[in-house]
Write a protein that binds this DNA or RNA. Structure first.
Length: 313
DNA sequence: GGTCGTCAAGGGGTG
DNA sequence: CACCCCTTGACGACC
């Protein structure tokens, strides 16, 4: 089994690259500057381009693109074309991704709540999903993955899960095919996600840290098979992070780096699996955390490293 | 050069 | 209902 490690959105090494500079709604309402909006989009796309080049140079095969790449794209009263004027950028970036066989995905933010009880929030969520799909489409990414959470807990878990399923079923089929659900740290645990996954036949992203925060005392070994099976022939994705510290208050927050021993323990659980797996390193120190983890793994384990970010166990 | 407040369309909890 | 908490990265103000 080959494991590829990835990181999310920005690089600590190249911290001057900002692929998510904002053009806030408030600022837009004041100035309505199409020029400013355009310059922010161009600068974000150029930063993304540089990040992809950096990933290729460092053999990073797995990368999450920032959701804030195109500001205001999902505001329904801000109508603008974020496709045609930027075609050249999408093409260049997409070509690099394709040729390097890099897997990129999205993780829409907290405003994406498919199971909300508010009609407006659900319709906004549809726009958010379409926007993310569009970007992957413009980039020419074939295996489009949008990782989302189940959402809110209004009226209890059972009803909330039902709302998720009902609203999911109303989505256009091209979006249904892209969505994967991730267990969260407070409400919907891995068993809830697997239940939904079995009903809708969608992949489950295991978040290891969230599993530690929120579980029913089940063993990871016992649910792993179902998690991986939910991906069918696709490469399963897993999120990995370590707690900021061990106090109740800060356990849920992410640490700057990865605790190597818990990572080794986790690999021990999944080794022996037939398929390849992508693991997203979610640490505040971003790519620095990834590369530090690799250095520690090389020192502490006999994993066979294929390059800077991938190994065989 | 560090620290703080602000922005955002979210949920949730308290009084 | 008001208010505060959670969360993210960028950025401007301030000392």
């Amino acid at each position: 089994m080959r494991i590829r490690l990835g990181y999310a959105c920005i690089s600590k090494t190249l911290d001057y690259l900002t692929p998510s500079s904002p053009y806030t709604y408030t600022e837009y309402l004041e100035k309505r500057s199409v020029k400013k909006l355009d310059s922010v989009i161009v600068s974000n796309l150029k930063a993304l381009h540089e990040l992809i080049l950096y990933n290729i140079k460092n053999n990073v095969h797995f990368f999450r693109v920032s959701s804030k790449l195109i500001p205001l794209a999902t505001k329904n009263d801000v109508v603008f074309n974020y496709k045609d004027p930027y075609r050249i950028y999408y093409q260049q970036i997409g070509k690099l991704i394709l040729e390097s066989n890099m897997r990129v995905d999205f993780h829409p933010d907290q405003f994406c709540v498919l199971n909300s009880t508010k009609k407006e929030v659900v319709s906004n969520t549809l726009e958010i999903l379409k926007y993310h799909y569009n970007i992957l489409d413009y980039l020419g990414v074939k295996d489009k993955i949008l990782v989302i959470h189940v959402g809110g807990n209004t009226f209890g878990k059972e009803k909330s899960i039902s709302r998720f399923i009902n609203n999911f079923n109303r989505l256009p089929s091209y979006l249904k095919k892209c969505i994967a659900i991730e267990n969260d740290d407070k409400i919907f645990n891995i068993k809830d996600c697997l239940k939904i996954s079995q009903k809708l036949d969608i992949p489950v992203v295991l978040d290891y840290h969230h599993f530690r925060c929120n579980n029913e005392q089940e063993k990871l070994e016992d649910v792993m098979k179902d998690i991986l099976a939910s991906w069918h022939n696709k490469t399963p994705k897993i999120h990995f992070s370590s707690p900021k510290n061990n106090t109740k208050k800060d356990f849920r927050s992410h640490h700057d780096y990865i605790d190597v021993d818990s990572f080794i323990k986790f690999i021990d659980i999944i080794k022996g699996v037939e398929c390849d797996i992508d693991i997203m390193i979610e640490a505040k120190a971003k790519d620095e955390a990834l590369f530090r983890l690799v250095r520690e793994l090389k020192y502490k384990t006999d994993f066979i490293f294929m390059d800077e970010t991938s190994f065989i166990v």
